Structure formats: structure tokens, C-alpha cells
Computed example of a mutant assay.
Amino acid sequence: MSEQQKSVVEVTAQDLHGPGVVFCPNPKMTLWSNHPKVYVDLSHTGEGKCPYCGTVYRLKAGEKISAGH
């Protein structure tokens, strides 16, 4: 298997679902290549990686994760 370049998706605080979480595949990914939906936690370091496809989700510079709703 060849090593593919992993994509990096920068997200804003508005893109988060709950306290510091995004889901993958994200809405911009093509449907034919989807894997099961997983939640990627960004709350600890501002970055997380999908265990299925390797996409890295990173909180944009200056964005803050809110502690509550």
C-alpha cells in the first residue's frame, strides 16, 4: 500500500459538535468513499486524527473551545 498524503482540515469553534469534538467523514467528503462516522476529540491539544482515513482535524489559530453551551 502506498503512503498517501494525509489531508489537514482546519476547523473553527462553530464547526465543533459538543465540547471540542468534530466528526469524520466531514460533510465535504465524497459519499462513495465514506467510512463509519467517528468523533475526533480536539479538546486536549486542538488537534486530532481520524483512525480510519488519517485526516487530521486542527483548530484554527485563535479559535477557542467553549467550556459549555
Results as ranks from 00 to 15, higher is better:
residue 52 Y to A: 09
residue 10 E to D: 00
residue 2 S to Q: 13
residue 8 V to L: 07
residue 34 N to T: 15
residue 26 N to K: 04
residue 21 V to E: 09
residue 30 T to P: 13
residue 23 F to S: 14
residue 43 S to Q: 08
residue 46 G to T: 05
residue 63 E to R: 03
residue 29 M to A: 14
residue 38 V to A: 04
residue 15 D to E: 03
residue 53 C to T: 06
residue 35 H to M: 07
residue 3 E to K: 13
residue 13 A to M: 03
residue 5 Q to E: 15
residue 27 P to S: 02
residue 19 P to C: 11
residue 62 G to M: 14
residue 64 K to R: 15
residue 27 P to L: 09
residue 68 G to K: 15
residue 56 V to K: 13
residue 41 D to G: 02
residue 14 Q to Y: 10
residue 39 Y to Q: 09
residue 42 L to H: 01
residue 11 V to S: 07
residue 57 Y to I: 05
residue 26 N to W: 14
residue 36 P to A: 03
residue 9 V to Q: 14
residue 40 V to W: 01
residue 54 G to A: 00
residue 25 P to Q: 00
residue 42 L to D: 04
residue 49 K to F: 10
residue 39 Y to S: 06
residue 9 V to A: 04
residue 16 L to R: 04
residue 22 V to L: 05
residue 32 W to V: 14
residue 53 C to H: 05
residue 16 L to S: 08
residue 34 N to H: 11
residue 58 R to S: 08
residue 43 S to P: 03
residue 21 V to I: 14
residue 44 H to G: 09
residue 1 M to C: 12
residue 26 N to R: 09
residue 50 C to W: 10
residue 49 K to W: 07
residue 17 H to N: 07
residue 36 P to T: 06
residue 14 Q to A: 14
residue 25 P to W: 00
residue 33 S to Q: 02
residue 23 F to D: 12
residue 64 K to L: 13
residue 10 E to Y: 12
residue 66 S to Q: 15
residue 43 S to H: 07
residue 5 Q to H: 09
residue 1 M to F: 12
residue 63 E to K: 00
residue 61 A to G: 05
residue 33 S to I: 04
residue 40 V to D: 02
residue 19 P to H: 11
residue 22 V to P: 04
residue 61 A to M: 08
residue 51 P to Q: 02
residue 12 T to P: 06
residue 43 S to I: 03
residue 58 R to L: 11
residue 50 C to Y: 09
residue 23 F to I: 11
residue 49 K to D: 15
residue 12 T to M: 08
residue 12 T to S: 13
residue 43 S to R: 14
residue 17 H to F: 09
residue 18 G to M: 10
residue 16 L to V: 03
residue 59 L to I: 02
residue 68 G to I: 12
residue 28 K to Q: 15
residue 5 Q to V: 11
residue 27 P to G: 01
residue 32 W to N: 13
residue 2 S to R: 10
residue 69 H to V: 13
residue 24 C to H: 00
residue 45 T to D: 11
residue 56 V to W: 01
residue 45 T to I: 01
residue 39 Y to H: 09
residue 37 K to T: 14
residue 39 Y to G: 08
residue 2 S to N: 13
residue 50 C to R: 00
residue 10 E to R: 06
residue 63 E to V: 01
residue 44 H to V: 11
residue 60 K to M: 01
residue 54 G to L: 03
residue 18 G to W: 05
residue 37 K to A: 07
residue 9 V to E: 13
residue 27 P to M: 03
